[in-house]
């Protein structure tokens, strides 16, 4: 019984996450940037590493490293607000 409760809880959570993402997309489509920004936590971190094509066995080189290398994005709420 417990496991089916967990399954239902997971489904509900998935539904909540989906609805949040749709609402977010809606705000952006409507250019409601202030409202969209208000959804973000103050300590949000927006980070996207760069990817390299590397040899099998050298996978540690596949992505540029956090806090050390150049990345496509590495921003917090302050920079996101300026955008």
């Amino acid at each position: 019984m417990a496991s089916s409760d967990q399954a239902i809880a997971r489904l509900l959570l998935k539904d909540e996450v989906e609805r949040f993402l749709f609402a977010e997309a809606e705000l952006l489509d409507d250019r409601q940037y202030e409202e969209w920004l208000a959804l973000l936590d103050d300590d949000i971190r927006y980070w996207m590493p760069m990817r390299r094509n590397v040899k099998f066995g050298e996978l540690e080189r596949e992505f540029t490293r956090e806090g050390q290398d150049i990345n496509w994005f590495d921003e917090g709420k302050d920079t996101l607000m300026r955008r």
């Binding site: 996207m48 150049i70 990345n71 496509w72 921003e75 920079t79």
Partner: peptide, 16 residues
Amino acid sequence: DYLRHYYIRYSGPGGL
């Protein structure tokens, strides 16, 4: 570290 962050927010296809 400061300069690296500045470079990233300025440059590249995602840079301002």
